[in-house]
Amino acid sequence: MKYTKDELDFVEQHCQMLRSDMHAEFVKRFGRCDISIRNLDELRKRNRWLTGRTGPPPGWKPRYKFPVGHRPANAFKVGNIPKHKFKRIREIGFEFLTKDGYTAIYIAPKHFVPKHRYLWEQKYGAIPAGYFLKCKGDRADSDPSNWELIPRGLISMLDGPQGRGYSRAPAELKPIIMAVTRLEHTLKERKRR
């Protein structure tokens, strides 16, 4: 936003007014309907034209002051989780379905992983670099027998723009598509060497 020198002087002189009152006066005086209250407030903050507030008045005391060690039973305690935040924090082992249809599991209070990956690593060990778990059937089925370890290079060949539509294929065609794609990938790898 561009401001004239008169407009800037006005905002600087009236920075201690209420924002709504200053905005109404500004629009009335300069006819700038394109300027919002927020625009004027940001201008004031950028130029460090303070409102004049310095905190509570002298002698002000908080309404509730508790002596040390004498807090009421409903006061916040360390380790308590407020009810409005409880939905975000889950117990270890809590499972849910992601938007993509995969089952995920919490392995720490705020840390979750895909359940199929977690179970695979429990049974077979860590997934090697350059490899990926691909579903043979239903994505929500996390049993390691439903997943197979494939090289990352196969992902685009299976489901990419020029891929074979593996995820949308009927269950009886999936093994054939996977075998053909693996064969093509192996041939490409050998040609590179």
Rank of each mutant, 00 (worst) to 15 (best):
L43C: 10
R88M: 13
S142Q: 00
I107E: 12
T103M: 15
S142W: 04
D143F: 01
R63Q: 13
W49H: 14
P72L: 06
P114W: 06
I177P: 08
R193S: 08
A104I: 02
K188C: 14
A171F: 11
V68E: 13
F132I: 12
A104L: 01
L154T: 08
F86I: 11
Q13V: 08
A169R: 10
L43D: 00
F30I: 10
F86Y: 11
C15D: 12
F30E: 12
D143C: 05
T54I: 05
A108S: 15
P67N: 14
A179M: 06
G130D: 04
R53A: 11
D138I: 11
K134P: 00
H111N: 08
F30R: 11
N47D: 01
L149Y: 04
F10R: 07
K2C: 05
C135I: 09
E91M: 03
R48F: 09
P175T: 03
A169L: 12
V27Q: 08
P170A: 13
E95I: 02
P72F: 04
K83R: 14
E42L: 14
K65S: 13
D6N: 11
F94L: 00
R182C: 11
R53P: 00
V68P: 02
N47A: 01
P109E: 10
F26S: 09
K65Q: 14
H185A: 05
